[in-house]
């Protein structure tokens, strides 16, 4: 087999296992949602709840059917992209989710890109002179980024740049048609979301680089006069990025978790704020649909991570890591 055939086979097997994982996770999710205490009908209707209204809503949500029936309906509908109609807004749940997903994706990817663009160079610079003042300073900076909760960062950015200085907009995701407006609305939330990741990525890159720099092939390059900048910034970095990328894949769940906080503080429509509001209303069908999307995103993102790693390290596609 050629390298490309091997890579293609690798991706195909990974994709099949991804699909199985999504199905499994969806089933698990379905059962878990039903175990959470609290009852949508009473929460939504409050003191107005009459037995008739309750019965109506329970029926609309399909909660009066047997669990097996509910499961079958959920799975067969979800498979065709039909998550039912929202009892609150009387709109298809799929529309609600699809409406906000681009906002969350824009937030997550801009934060991740920002974190990579800033975090990798910091890690490389720190690894160039381990133990130096610069290294220690960057370590302190990175660790303070990691340990400051996203909530605190968001609130501070919000108060200083949006409320205090009026440099950037206060809330929302901006006018749908206006790119500049949308980008302006994206700045503070993505910085808030990225900051911890800058610290995280720079520490990961530094540690992986120092491990790699101790390997013998680095000595070969040094013996042949390759400059330290090219060794650290190119030859060792490519190898060091493999573990970093793997860990990033696992950490994506955390990124989505933090985006809930950021979306709430900046009043940004997104999957985070949709889940938050739906949980507050015990609107389980919506929560369920959101989580299916998040799980699918997480798993697909990990597929992408594996593919990036197979591109970085040819031994992965060849089946010996």
């Amino acid at each position: 087999m050629t390298r490309w055939q091997r890579t293609a086979a690798f991706i195909a097997t990974r994709f099949a296992s991804v699909m199985l994982t999504i199905v499994g996770a969806t089933l698990l999710l379905f059962l878990m949602v039903r175990l959470v205490p609290g009852d949508f009908a009473s929460v939504m209707l409050g003191p107005r709840a009459t037995p008739d209204l309750r019965a109506q809503i329970v029926h609309d949500m399909g909660l009066d059917r047997s669990l097996a029936e509910q499961l079958w309906l959920f799975v067969s509908h979800a498979a065709t992209g039909n998550f039912g109609e929202d009892v609150v807004s009387h709109r298809p749940i799929l529309d609600l989710v699809l409406e906000v997903i681009p906002n969350t994706l824009a937030l997550a990817f801009s934060a991740l890109a920002l974190a990579l663009v800033v975090g990798i160079p910091i890690g490389v610079i720190a690894a160039l002179k381990p133990g130096s003042w610069l290294d220690s300073g960057l370590a302190l900076l990175s660790i303070s980024f990691i340990t400051t909760p996203t909530l605190v960062v968001s609130v501070v950015l919000f108060l200083v740049f949006a409320i205090g200085l009026h440099w950037l907009p206060v809330a929302g995701a901006g006018n749908p048609g206006d790119i500049v407006d949308r980008l302006q609305h994206l700045v503070l939330p993505s910085v808030a979301l990225a900051l911890g990741w800058v610290g995280y990525i720079s520490r990961l890159v530094r540690a992986a680089l120092l491990d790699t720099l101790a390997e013998l092939h680095v000595r070969t390059l040094r013996a042949y006069g390759v400059s330290e900048y090219r060794i650290v910034g190119l030859f060792a970095l490519k190898l060091a990025l493999v573990p970093v990328v793997s860990i990033l894949g696992i950490g994506l769940g955390d990124l989505i978790g933090s985006s809930v906080v950021v979306e709430i503080i900046f009043a940004r429509p997104g999957i985070g704020s949709l889940i938050f509001n739906s949980i507050a209303q015990r609107n389980y069908p919506v929560v369920q649909a959101c989580v299916v999307f998040i799980v699918a995103f997480y798993i697909l993102a990990n597929l992408v991570v594996d593919m990036i790693n197979a591109l970085l390290d040819p031994r992965i596609a060849a089946g010996r890591g």
Partner: peptide, 17 residues
Amino acid sequence: GMAMIFQDPMLSLNPVF
């Protein structure tokens, strides 16, 4: 002016280039 050949050829080349 100087070049070197190493003891462990399995480890003396970068695996990802």
